[in-house]
Design a protein around this nucleic acid. Structure first.
Length: 636
DNA sequence: GTAGGGTTAG
């Protein structure tokens, strides 16, 4: 609101050209919002009028407070023009503020031209410009400006480095990240908390978790953010149990977790699938915080669903005061992997009634839900609804899901037609899925087409050769099997050896298939034989289709029995005290037919069964829906 | 004038 004094002032300046008038008006309005210093405003009002009328220099302090209070890009531009006229573009404080405002309003071009024209720059100018490019994900300009900064010989400040490091993290440029780390060291800033946190995060997101941990361990001061980054890093790198250990250490050090930290730990729990931990975390949230925000609530839904309780997940969902599209999608996918596709569809319908617009992931979750329950027609309907009503173009993942669904249902022709007609680049996942269906239905010809495409995309992936070879083997085409082996040798593709590690006596013990190098090898094989006899009595029949070579059934079975996971489990059973979990880690994805069937027979010796189930729950891999059924049946 | 958080899934 304008005071009478202001109105008089406006009348007094009507002779000034319109743009200036506009600027003065907006500046006054901003000042009058009460956010700027009123006293300063009063003092400068008359001065301002005189100065503008004379077009002489204004007090830069006036512009600084006016700039801070700008609400629109246009106001900033107009003040910029005024500064230019007033000849104030030499004042570093003022220009830096102007630069900062341009960056804040995402006007990177304006910021950049201003930066280029600056007669002098200080640390703040550089850090604002570099930070601006970083925030706008303009990594090329960010790095280029950072290089210029280094070359300028100016001492680096602690605000610039984290911005550059975060860009390295986002584009996963480990080489550049390491270089920036080196530079930080050179400037003596490598132990600054903000620099360190950014580096830990960068190393973790670039997949070099050991480097992240080393830096974390030597950091002089660890604040809540630092701990949160490290906890999240462990979970993201397949070591969620370490996340929980760190979380306890953090609390022992006297720090109270905030909501962001809780989301991270909830996420770790979801990855671990450990229900008892989930409940403890939930209790902590209930006692510590008055409300659960949307992100934390969504993470909790996911956690409970992945820990096996779809009911509690739904309860959290129902109790949330606000839900967005991600919350709804999470609930849909939760029902999906619990095999309750109808419930997933029901949630989708309620969501639509609530006028929440679904996104790509919502549809993907729906399609996966249909896929897990084999609802082909429903999936086809959803797929068409997504395109026709919501105008969402399917990406390769949607197609992969459809191809998988149709393929598993035996509608291979339809799946193949879909692949042929799609307008999206076909990737390995899509063809692999189709190839897997060809294997189920022994479709050698289609399998050849799929394998051909796969080998074009990635001739170095051994699993494609092996899959095709298995299909030939099942069809008794041993000549073709031999050809593939020659082909693999010719281009030097080797099957990645499968390893399994088991943690016992504080050491990791590694096993490969048919491994006899372990010092307790004899005892391990003895245990395994005993276990297999017990399993066979209870109906375990290994699927020998997956063995590649043309060998007798007896030898095939021998191979299966000595698979690395089984050796690791057998060793775990003889070396880990009863009641403790057996944790196994693998370098390759588990083979459902070989190992899951082995472990899911639910009439096992009651002493053995809980151990095996615990192992599956603590393993880094997520249990398949099938295994979860076995777990439920065993009332574990 | 700085950071860390949620949904796909083989």
């Amino acid at each position: 609101m304008f005071t009478l004094k202001n109105q008089r002032l406006l009348i007094a300046v009507t002779s000034i050209e319109s743009q200036k008038l506009c600027s003065v008006a907006s500046a006054l309005q901003i000042l009058d919002d009460g956010q700027a210093n009123r006293q300063f405003h009063e003092q400068n009002t008359s001065l301002l009028t005189n100065q503008i009328q004379e077009t002489t220099s204004l007090d830069p302090r006036f512009y600084v407070s006016a700039l801070i209070n700008c609400k629109h890009l246009q106001q900033i531009k107009s003040l910029h023009a005024q500064l230019s006229v007033a000849g104030l573009l030499n004042d570093l404080l003022l220009i830096n503020k102007l630069l900062y405002m341009y960056v804040r309003y995402n006007a990177l071009d304006d910021a950049n031209s201003l930066f280029d024209e600056m007669p002098a720059r200080n640390q703040i100018s550089w850090s604002v410009m570099i930070g601006g490019f970083a925030k706008a994900s303009n990594h090329t300009n960010c790095f280029e400006t950072f290089r210029e900064y280094i070359r300028s010989g100016e001492q680096l400040d602690v605000y610039t480095l984290p911005s550059v490091i975060r860009v390295c993290r986002d584009i996963k440029d480990l080489k550049m990240g390491k270089l920036v780390h080196h530079i930080a060291h050179k400037f003596g800033l490598h132990m600054n908390t903000f620099v360190c946190v950014a580096l830990v995060d960068m190393y973790a997101k670039c997949g070099v978790i050991d480097d992240a941990r080393k830096l974390f361990d030597i950091m002089p001061e660890k604040d809540l953010t630092t701990w949160t980054v490290m906890i999240g890093a462990c979970a993201a790198n397949g070591n969620a149990s370490e996340s929980l250990v760190l979380f306890d250490h953090m609390r022992e050090s006297g720090l109270l977790p905030d909501k962001v930290c809780m989301v991270t730990i909830v996420n770790a729990c979801a990855k671990l699938g450990a229900m008892h931990k989930a409940k403890l975390i939930h209790k902590l949230i209930q006692t510590q915080y008055h409300s659960v925000d949307m992100i934390l609530g969504t993470a909790m839904i996911d956690m409970y669903a992945k820990c096996g309780s779809i009911e509690t997940a739904r309860q959290v969902f129902d109790e949330m005061p606000q839900r967005n599209v991600i919350t709804w999608s999470t609930m849909i996918s939760a029902y999906g992997y619990h095999g309750q596709a109808q419930k997933a569809l029901e949630i989708f319908h309620i969501m639509s009634k609530n006028k929440i617009t679904p996104n790509k992931i919502t549809f993907l979750s729906l399609l996966y839900a249909c896929s897990h329950s084999g609802l082909v027609n429903e999936a086809l309907q959803i797929f068409s609804l997504m395109q026709n009503q919501y105008l969402i173009k399917p990406d390769v993942k949607h197609y992969t899901c459809m191809v998988d669904l149709l393929g598993r249902a035996g509608r291979l022709d339809q799946a193949f037609t879909m692949i042929k007609n799609m307008n999206v680049e076909k990737d390995e996942g899509l063809w692999s899925s189709f190839l897997a269906s060809c294997r189920i239905y022994n479709q050698v010809e289609m399998a050849q087409k799929a394998a051909g495409s796969l080998l074009e995309i990635n001739p170095q992936n051994p699993s494609h050769y092996i899959m095709l070879s298995n299909i030939y083997a099942k069809a008794g085409k041993w000549d073709d099997v031999a050809k593939i082996r020659v082909q693999m040798n010719n281009i030097n593709v080797k099957k990645t050896p499968g390893w399994t590690w088991v943690e016992a006596h504080n050491t990791f013990h590694r096993f490969s298939s048919g491994d006899r190098t372990h010092c307790e090898s004899n005892a391990i094989y003895e245990k395994l034989e005993g276990l297999i006899r017990k399993l066979e009595v209870n109906g375990y029949v290994p699927d020998t289709d997956f063995v590649l070579h043309d060998v007798s059934e007896e030898v095939k079975l021998g191979n299966l029995y000595e698979h690395s996971e089984k050796l690791a489990i057998a060793y775990g059973l003889i070396s880990i005290p009863e009641g403790n979990p057996i944790r196994v880690t693998k370098n390759l994805r588990g083979n459902r037919h070989l190992c899951h069937n082995f472990m899911k027979v639910d009439k096992l010796d009651p002493l053995v069964m809980p151990k095996l189930l615990t192992m599956m729950l603590c393993g880094t891999e997520r249990c398949s829906a099938e295994l979860k059924d076995a777990l439920r049946k065993a009332k574990f």
